[in-house]
Simulated assay, not measured.
Amino acid sequence: MSIHLACHSTLTGAQREQLLTLDVLPEQKAFCGDIHGALYTLLDRPNPNIRGFALLHDAVPVAFLLLKRPPFLPPWADEDAATLHALQVDARLQGRGYGRACLQALPAVARQAWPQVNQLMLSVDQGNSAAHGLYLSEGWVDTGTAYRGRVGYERRLALTLPA
């Protein structure tokens, strides 16, 4: 069994087609969007400061996420950060540790993509206790900052990358 986070640009045509079948639960779409919106962000105007990554399990995409750097950072992010967006685990496969696997692989792929990045940042809806707990269990630190997001109040979390 092989699980790894692969850059979208390295996916085969078949893997890109499989990625299009990734779906999240309806109640999650308000927070992470859907795969079509995430891929539109990635592919509409390709830019080296927006990268997509698919979590592959035995070469099959089971999750997807976006990373962004300046000038695409949201206003709440620090300039030396890359921000995590649109983390999506296929609804049919949730509860199997794929979200955790994405978070565990993320520091290495972020550092490889952008060596100058010192931290990862994300925002999570204050009411999304499952996601908030997962991030904290993987070493992310709640900065104590809450702000009004598009769905409700969101918490800002950060993860310092090893040198």
Rank of each mutant, 00 (worst) to 15 (best):
M1K: 11
H4Q: 13
H8M: 02
T12P: 09
R16I: 04
Q18K: 13
Q18Y: 00
Q18H: 11
L19P: 00
D23R: 15
V24C: 13
V24R: 02
F31N: 07
F31T: 00
F31S: 04
G33D: 08
I35V: 15
G37N: 11
A38Q: 05
L43Y: 03
D44Q: 11
D44R: 14
N49Q: 15
V60F: 00
V60S: 15
F64P: 05
L66D: 01
L67Y: 12
K68N: 08
R69G: 01
P70V: 13
E79M: 06
E79R: 13
A81P: 07
A82R: 11
A82C: 14
V89Y: 02
L93H: 06
L93W: 02
G95V: 01
R96P: 02
G99I: 00
C102S: 06
C102N: 05
L103R: 11
A108V: 06
R111E: 11
A113P: 00
W114N: 07
V117R: 07
N118Q: 14
V124Y: 08
Q126H: 10
G127E: 13
G127S: 12
N128G: 08
A131T: 04
A131G: 04
H132Y: 12
H132V: 12
G133F: 02
G133E: 03
L134A: 04
L136S: 11
L136Q: 15
S137M: 09
W140Y: 07
W140C: 06
D142P: 12
D142L: 04
D142E: 11
G144H: 05
G144N: 07
G152H: 14
E154H: 14
R155S: 07
A158K: 14
